[in-house]
Design a binder for these strands. Structure first.
Length: 839
RNA sequence: GGCCCUGUGGUCUAGUGGUUAUGACGUUGCCCUUACAAGGCGAAGAUCGCCGGUUCAACUCCGGCCAGGGCCACCA
């Protein structure tokens, strides 16, 4: 192949991609003797198309994969899709025009998997286009496919056998729209306005005396479990008209400014404990008690707890050994306990009861307040806490162990470790993993009439309890199937095993686990990362991967979060259309791991520039190396002229530095180390300096030209290999056009990462060469300032330098004269380096 | 409220005790120099968020403050 006139990125990338596919360049060889490097690639949700944040984070992983491959590892680089969740369910329903909830599970799986099979190729194409070097053909999975269901259900059985799983009744965070339990991690914060009502509750034992409590959830009063005060706290009794109000001593001045009152008595919490109060509309006695959560100087110093206003209330009930009341049903509506408000959803009941309380004179004050409430991430409804029977992985007592194991990961960047630390240390709940949804992987359990549990044999997995029976159960026994499904994280926490299950050789499977690298974005540290490590540690007492590399978010050019609703998203497909895949990858290579960075189109532009430069410099080299032979690749440093030695020697330092940077996952640094060497030292300087010697061997000598050819081939080829992980298309194109005639590998991506040749490393040569280049720069500057052409001749350049430098420069004096067009170059021995130019 | 990250020319960014403070984009002058006009070679442009401290020496270390972003928690 040879070089076209101009580099056409789109055409070229298309052809190169086909070439890779035909030749299976990135296929994983499970019979390899090489050391493996395994990557737990995040499976994207099969929906819509790849977004630009994906483009950046996946390429960042790809740089590592390609580097490792070139460094001699057999890279295990799978690519699955996460199709187990609501997003997929919605998508399939929309595209297939079916309601999956009306189907049997088997049918729902069949339809979904059919959809995935039909669309996977197209969906994954964006990643392939980007040059992600995963083994898409052999190492794939879907989190809803049969293998995945089997693995998920097996891990349920394993955890159960270990005694870590339990089904129990208890309060759970609840999504009333989807009518399912949800996890701590599925909550989202929402800031909004709410009314804080100050309500009076009559003390039964004393006439006209009331406790004042405040609440934002008046509709939950029917679930009141008690009223609490702080036992040692100070309270006051106020006389208001002909009533007596009891409230906190520290705050009444501020709270009741608008009210005409008179302080009649000072009290402590002790004085109130044991009293019976009447909460408006609640026809049940409520006792006043002490509770640690109540502070006399906060609010009114008096609080009621209901089932359930929030997690705090749940603990409150536990502390007081009080049985909760079922005020809200699973659809989020008030039960018959709610009296006249029965059937209303909480927000509606709230506004109605507020009006009633006000009308009946129970509200003494109404405060508008900004509050942060938890809403369900998926439905957007207020989170309610209700009592129901759920399945749990009991791990709350293992927080310390988890934190210990989390510290064993090799974190990049290091500070992301504190995220998981905060999360683990702040965990309050066991892992409630059952979901009351139809679409999902079923929990593999049956019950008999007495409530005994029956489990399937491993050999029959995956099962659907709704249609299957456990082999072990007596034939005529009547069994009731469990209808709940597993939380999606229960499945995606095992992506390592899912990916590895593609491998046939069990020996190889063992080698691949734990995986070497888990790349992921920081927003799911508390989900995917945490659940993955928790589950692996519960099952095997080991971490599922060794290194964690956390990528940042890609923000819009102004540094704001991209979102569809804001309309500030950028489609990677359009960027590629405008520039190229290499260019987009280059931009991704410019960002530091773990940092949120704004998208800068100029970086993409710079990437295209680099690709053009690679094309042109190598096209030029191909012309000048017409008579170059494979055996010419070998040379000794001493065979070369001094400026040739310079570029070859400098290359060694560059390789050394870039290799260290890659090993430390300092990807953007490695990229710019090589890029700068190639752009500045090789293209701008070295090639310019030796151009004439290469062009005119008849004038400057065949032997002299050969030296430059040898150095040029060496530095260009190694630069090409060093840039191959970042811009795989253009480097492959150039390799196919030229280097393939000299090298044995079929693809540049099968060649090895540049190695440092210590015989070529010489700091003195590099220093002197840099001074040589300085002379060139000064001459250019001189001409630029005089506004004359670069071709214009200079009569003399006088260089003041050390004797060593003089000898170095003199050895390449012909090149210096050529590049500066100086007629005469004279030297003066001096400690201080200086250049004088005469026109 | 606790914790984490960030603050360097117009914009983005490198820089972990001594540098003429890096590079890119943008701006600008010259040049169609036999690879490259989606180019080449130059130039201009930064009191390194603010205030203190440590030090012979601070963009760099320490403390405080300010600003932006994030995580977690609280939320009667």
């Amino acid at each position: 192949m040879s070089f076209e006139d101009k580099y056409n990125a789109h055409e070229s990338e298309q052809k190169i991609r086909e070439f890779w596919q035909e030749n299976k360049i990135y296929e994983f060889d499970e019979n390899t003797s090489k050391i493996t490097f395994s990557i737990d690639t995040p499976p994207p949700t099969l929906s819509g198309r790849m977004h630009i944040g994906h483009a950046f984070s996946y390429t960042q992983t790809d740089f590592v994969a390609r580097y490792k491959r070139m460094s001699g590892f057999e890279v295990f680089y799978p690519f699955g899709t996460d199709d187990n969740g609501l997003a997929t369910e919605k998508l399939v329903q929309k595209e297939k025009k079916v309601n999956l909830r009306n189907q049997t599970r088997d049918e729902a799986f069949r339809i979904t998997n059919e959809y995935i099979a039909e669309n996977r190729e197209q969906f994954v194409q964006d990643w392939k286009d980007l040059g992600i070097s995963a083994d898409f053909e052999n190492l794939n999975y879907s989190t809803i496919d049969e293998r995945s269901r089997k693995i998920s259900q097996q891990s349920f059985l394993d955890l159960y056998k270990k005694g870590l799983i339990e089904q129990r009744e208890g309060p759970v965070a609840w999504d009333r729209v989807f009518q399912t339990a949800i996890a701590q991690a599925e909550l989202e914060d929402l800031e909004r306005k709410a009314f804080l009502l100050y309500v009076k509750a009559k003390i039964k034992s004393t006439e006209n005396t009331y406790l004042i409590y405040a609440t934002t959830r008046p509709e939950l009063c029917f679930g009141v479990g008690g009223v609490s005060v702080e036992d040692n706290g100070e309270y006051v009794k106020l006389k208001v008209a002909n009533e007596f109000w009891i409230t906190g001593a520290a705050t009444y001045l501020e709270k009741f400014q608008d009210i005409d009152y008179e302080v009649v008595e000072k009290l402590t919490g002790e004085d109130l404990i044991g009293e019976i109060v009447q909460i408006p509309y609640v026809d049940r006695d409520v006792k006043v008690s002490h509770d640690v959560a109540v502070k006399a100087d906060f609010g009114t110093g008096i609080a009621y707890f209901c089932s359930y206003g929030g997690p705090e209330d749940i603990e409150w009930f536990t502390r007081h050994k009080t049985k909760p009341f079922e005020v809200l049903a699973k659809d989020g509506r008030l039960t018959k306990l709610g009296g006249k408000y029965e059937g209303e959803v909480a927000p509606d009941a709230r506004s109605k009861i507020t009006k009633d309380l006000e009308a009946d004179g129970f509200v003494i004050k109404k405060e508008k307040k900004t509050q942060n409430v938890n809403i369900c991430e998926r439905s957007g409804a207020d989170v309610e806490y209700i009592v129901s029977k759920q399945w749990y992985v009991n791990y709350i007592d293992k927080k310390e162990y988890f934190w210990e194991m989390a510290q064993k990961f090799d974190w990049t960047p290091e500070f992301m470790k504190t995220r998981i630390e905060n999360w683990i240390k702040g965990l309050n709940w066991d892992w409630g993993f059952s979901r009351q949804r139809k679409f999902g992987i079923p929990i593999p359990v049956w019950f008999d009439k007495e409530g005994n549990k029956y489990f399937p044999e491993s050999s029959q997995l995956p099962v659907d309890p709704l249609k299957d029976r456990p082999i072990s159960a007596p034939e005529h026994l009547e069994l009731i199937p469990e209808t709940d499904v597993l939380d999606t994280w229960f499945t995606s926490a095992r992506t390592t095993q899912l990916a590895i299950s593609n491998v046939k050789s069990s020996e190889m499977r063992d080698k691949l686990f734990p995986m070497d690298l888990r790349p992921q974005a920081h927003d799911i540290i508390n989900f995917w990362l945490f659940y993955s490590m928790a589950k692996s540690n519960l099952l095997f007492e080991c971490n599922p991967f060794k290194k964690v590399a956390i990528s940042g978010w890609l923000l819009d050019p102004k540094g704001k979060k991209m979102s569809k609703s804001k309309g500030n998203t950028i489609a990677p497909q359009e960027v590629v259309e405008k520039f190229s895949n290499d260019a987009l990858r280059f931009a991704a290579a410019s960002t530091k791991l773990g940092q949120d960075i704004p998208y800068q189109e100029k970086e993409v532009k710079t990437g295209l520039k680099l690709a053009n430069k690679l094309f042109n410099a190598n096209k030029f080299a191909a012309m000048l190396l017409k008579d170059f032979k494979p055996e010419d690749r070998d040379f000794k440093l001493d065979d070369l002229n001094s400026i040739d030695k310079w570029i070859v020697s400098k290359l060694q330092f560059v390789i050394q530095q870039a290799t260290t940077q890659m090993d430390n996952y300092d990807i953007s640094f490695a990229k710019s180390t090589i890029e700068q060497f190639f752009m500045s030292d090789v293209a701008d300087n070295y090639i310019e300096i030796v151009k004439q010697r290469l062009w005119k061997p008849e004038e400057f000598g065949i032997k002299e030209a050969k030296k430059a050819q040898q150095a040029l081939y060496n530095v260009l080829y190694n630069s090409l290999k060093g840039l191959a992980p970042f811009v795989p298309y253009i480097t492959e194109q150039v390799y196919q056009n030229f280097y393939k005639d000299f090298e044995s590998e079929i693809s540049v991506h099968k060649t090895s990462w540049p190695k440092v040749n210590t015989n070529f490393m010489n700091q003195e040569i590099v220093d002197n060469g840099n001074l040589f280049v300085e002379v060139v720069k000064q001459a250019r500057k001189f001409k630029a300032e005089k506004q004359i052409s670069m071709k214009e001749e200079l009569s003399q350049i006088k260089i003041s330098c050390s004797n060593d430098t003089k000898e170095f420069i003199e050895n390449s004096i012909v090149d210096l004269k050529n590049v500066t067009s100086a007629q005469e170059i004279i030297f003066e021995i001096s400690e201080k380096f200086n250049i004088e130019i005469t026109q």
